[in-house]
Design a protein around this nucleic acid. Structure first.
Length: 499
RNA sequence: GCAGCUGUAGCUCAGUUGGUUAGAGCGCCUGACUGUGGAUCAGGAGGUCGGUGGUUCGAGUCCACCCAGCUGUACCA
C-alpha cells in the first residue's frame, strides 16, 4: 500500500469495510432516536453512566490466557506497559467492571443506562457494522424477577415510543435454566459434553430463521445451505432431537406454554427453576397489562452463550421490509438482554445478581429509515448573504452577523463570487430558505433584496423561455430597507415553517 | 473461515464469435442567454477496463493466481 502510493504519487481515500461516515441527516435521525430512548429509560428510573471505549482486555472477558492475547473478535492493542487493551464490544462488560470498582459507593440495586459506540472485529453485512451504537439499561444488585419483567416492559415501551406500532415488534422471553434443563433431560451433562451442548443451543437459536426442519438437521447429522456449504450437526439421536424440538410445539396461550415446559422438564431441577422464573416474569408483565402480543414466552430464544444465567429476552421487528431493489430484508433482532448473575463476581468474588437490556441503535435506525419513521434529509440550510461587489465584503459580513445575532442561521458566500448565478446555485444546493443580495442599485437606495428560493422555484416551475423565467424570479424577491433586513428574513423563514 | 456470484467514467450500465482510437445516460466543470437557481444551446474534463502473470499476431473479452465487493453460511460477547 505504501509502495503503491509512492508509485502513483497519491493515497487512495478509502474507508475500512464495515465502517461508515454519517452525514447531517443521519446524525439528526440518530440524535432523535437516542433522545426518545433516553426519555423512556429515564422514566423507568435509570440514571446515566458513561464509561470509556477502551478497557483492559481481561476486564472484557475476552482474553485468551492460553494464547496470551485477546480474542480475535475484539480490536486490541498493547499499552506502553505491555498490557492488552481492547475497544469495548458491548456495554455490559464495562458496566460490570465499573460496578465492581465502585461497589461500596453505589446505591444498590444500582440502576443505570448508557449509550455509545461499540466495536466488533468481524465480518460486516447488511445492517451489521464493525462500529455501531448501543443503548443499555441494567439493574445490578437485584435477584428479583421483577427486575427482569421490567426489562421486557421497558423494551416494549421503547419500541412504541419510537413509533413502531404494537404488533410490529415482539419481545420474546426465555430462560437459560429451561434450556439447561432440556440439555440435562437428554443427558448432555458434564464437561465432556460441552461442545455438544453449545451445538444444540446454536441450533435452537436458529429456529426462527431455519424453521423446524433446519433445526432438526442441525441437531442431527448436519445441514447443507443453499450455496452448497455444509454445517456439521450436533449428532444427536432421533429420540433426543424429538425431545428437544418438542419444546417448540405450538401452544394456545401462556398457561399452556408453561404447562408444556413443566411437563417436558419434570425430571430436571434446574429446568423447574427456570419454569418457575418464567412463570413469575409472565405473571408480572401480564398484571401490568402486557399481553403476548407484546411480550411472548418463546423457548427458542438463546442469546449469547457466555454469561447469561436466567431470563433472556430479545426484541424483534416483525414487519417485512424491502430493500432498494425490492428484495425483502430481515432486520432480525434490534435488542436483547438477560440476567447475568456471574459477571460482576469475576471481579469481586461475591455473587452480584444483575440483569440488563440493550438496544442496537444503528440497526434500529436502519430499520426505521426503511419504515419511513425517520426523516431523512431535507433539513433547511442557512440564509446565504451573497457577495455582489467583492470590495464590500465587510458590509456583507456585517449583515451576516446581524442575522446571526438575531438567532438566524446565516453565512457569507465564501466561494469565488464572480457572479450572482453561482451563488444562487450554491444556496439552492444548501437548501437555503432565502438569499440576501445587495448590488449597486440596492445600495444606492439603502436597501437589500431578499429572495425567497422556495417561492422562486415554485413560481418559475413552468417557465420555458429565459425571459419569462427571469420575470417570475423577480416576483419571488422583495426589496427592504437595510435596517429591516432581520425582520424581513424572519418573515420568509416563518412563511416556510422553521425547522 | 467456507461456498457461490460480481468487478468497465463520480453513479447506473452497454461493449458482437478475441480485432484499430472503449461507449451511453445521468452527474460534474466552463461558456452563452440582463445582475438570479430551472429549462435550452455550445464546449470540456474524467477510465492502466480490480491487480499480476499467462495463451495469442492481437485480450475489456480466454486461462491461472491474487485482491475487493455482494449474497448465503459458520462464528458472534
Amino acid at each position: 500500500m505504501v509502495e503503491e502510493s509512492i508509485k502513483s504519487g497519491k493515497l487512495k481515500a478509502r474507508l475500512p469495510r464495515g465502517l461508515a461516515d454519517r452525514g447531517p441527516a443521519e446524525i439528526a435521525a440518530t440524535r432523535n432516536l437516542v433522545e426518545r430512548i433516553r426519555s423512556v429509560f429515564e422514566r423507568y428510573g435509570f440514571e446515566a453512566l458513561e464509561t470509556p471505549a477502551i478497557e483492559y482486555s481481561d476486564a472484557l472477558g475476552k482474553f485468551l490466557p492460553d494464547q496470551d492475547r485477546p480474542n480475535e473478535g475484539v480490536f486490541s492493542f498493547k499499552d506502553d506497559d505491555e498490557q492488552w487493551l481492547s475497544l469495548r464490544y458491548d456495554l455490559t462488560a464495562p458496566l460490570a467492571r465499573h460496578v465492581a470498582e465502585n461497589y461500596r459507593n453505589l446505591v444498590l440495586p444500582y440502576r443505570s443506562y448508557r449509550c455509545g459506540y461499540v466495536f466488533r472485529n468481524e465480518k460486516p453485512g447488511p445492517g451489521r457494522f464493525r462500529q455501531f451504537m448501543q443503548f443499555d439499561a441494567d439493574t445490578v444488585g437485584s435477584a428479583s424477577m421483577a427486575a427482569d419483567a421490567e426489562m421486557c416492559m421497558l423494551a416494549a415501551d421503547t419500541m412504541e415510543a419510537l413509533g413502531i406500532p404494537r404488533g410490529s415488534y415482539i419481545v420474546r422471553v426465555n430462560n437459560r435454566k429451561v434450556l439447561d434443563g432440556l440439555l440435562e433431560t437428554v443427558g448432555l451433562t458434564g464437561p465432556e459434553k460441552e461442545a455438544q451442548r453449545l451445538a444444540v443451543l446454536r441450533a435452537m437459536d436458529k429456529y426462527d430463521r431455519l424453521g423446524l426442519a433446519g433445526v432438526r438437521q442441525l441437531l442431527g447429522d448436519g445441514r447443507k445451505d443453499e450455496s452448497g456449504d455444509f454445517t456439521r450437526g450436533a449428532g444427536l439421536p432421533e429420540a433426543d432431537i424429538r425431545t428437544i424440538t418438542s419444546i417448540f410445539e405450538p401452544v394456545r396461550d401462556v398457561d399452556d406454554r408453561i404447562a408444556q415446559i413443566d411437563l417436558r422438564l419434570r425430571e430436571s431441577k434446574v429446568g423447574q427453576e427456570g419454569r418457575e422464573e418464567i412463570a413469575t416474569v409472565s405473571r408480572l408483565v401480564r398484571a401490568a397489562g402486557y399481553d403476548s402480543d407484546r411480550i411472548l414466552i418463546d423457548p427458542s430464544v438463546v442469546r449469547g452463550l457466555e454469561y447469561y444465567t436466567g431470563p433472556v429476552y430479545e426484541v424483534e421487528l416483525t414487519f417485512e421490509i424491502n430493500d432498494d431493489k425490492g428484495r425483502p430484508v430481515r432486520f432480525g433482532s434490534v435488542g436483547g438482554g438477560g440476567r447475568y448473575d456471574g459477571l460482576v463476581a469475576r471481579f469481586t468474588g461475591q455473587p452480584v445478581p444483575a440483569t440488563g437490556f440493550s438496544i442496537g441503535v444503528s440497526r434500529l435506525a436502519a430499520a426505521l429509515a426503511h419504515l419511513g419513521k425517520i426523516e431523512t434529509g431535507d433539513a433547511r440550510g442557512p440564509v446565504v448573504v451573497t457577495v455582489f461587489d467583492r470590495g464590500r465584503l465587510a458590509d456583507y459580513q456585517r449583515m451576516v452577523q446581524s442575522l446571526r445575532g438575531a438567532g438566524i442561521r446565516a453565512e457569507l458566500y465564501l466561494g469565488n463570487p464572480k457572479n450572482i448565478g453561482n451563488q444562487l446555485k450554491y444556496a439552492d444546493r444548501r437548501k437555503s430558505p432565502c438569499v440576501v443580495i445587495q448590488g449597486d442599485d440596492e445600495r444606492a437606495r439603502g436597501e437589500v433584496t431578499i429572495k425567497d428560493l422556495a417561492l422562486g422555484a415554485e413560481l418559475a416551475g413552468g417557465a420555458q423561455e429565459r425571459a419569462d423565467y427571469l420575470k417570475l424570479q423577480d416576483e419571488a424577491q422583495i426589496a427592504v430597507k437595510e435596517a429591516e433586513l432581520v425582520q424581513a428574513v424572519r418573515a420568509v423563514l416563518e412563511r416556510h415553517g422553521r425547522r
